[in-house]
Amino acid sequence: MNIFRLAGDVSHLVAILILLMKIWRSKSCAGISGRSQVLFALVFTTRYLDLFTVYISAYNTVMKVVFLALSYATVYLIYMRFRNSYDSENDTFRVEFLLIPVIGLSFLENYAFTPLEILWTFSIFLESVAIMPQLFMITKTGEAESITTHYLFFLGLYRALYIANWVWRYHTEGFYDQIAIVSGVVQTIFYCDFFYLYVTRGEEIRTPS
């Protein structure tokens, strides 16, 4: 554990909490892509199956359970509790275009051809593109509420901090996880355009139409 990794995890947690609290307090999930949130729940589910096979640390176990619970709570709020406010007309990204290549790639490129490893690889690849339905929705409607942009900012910051963590770990432990690093860099690149808008235009984002 190093400061970049810890800051990255905290940033990830903050992002998820911002979104959940926004939906809970406003009793509305307008402008939020339910499809992205389902993909993130799928990411956590397939990645954290090792909760049942290996024990790493109390921190690790607690964070995994928290991320799983929060992601399912978010999906529940969007599709059940506040489904009247769900903007399904603008949440139309075809997730099969993400899922099919990601499933294919996780079978081709993995550390071991075992069910758990393939699912772990699938989750890493899927995470790198899971935000695309949300970004697509913002492009389609041409706007995002400021609180939604804070969510995206912390979500992007989390992966950027993980890159710093990987650089640190490579230099101090000689550790590197090729699949995670490549996907993490790709994931961070998806946020760069958003970061640029966030900084230059302020919190409330309107894309030029």
Partner: peptide, 10 residues
């Protein structure tokens, strides 16, 4: 023996 890699990151 089955491969067991430890993914210690979240």
């Amino acid at each position: 023996r089955e491969f067991t890699s430890i993914h210690d990151e979240l």
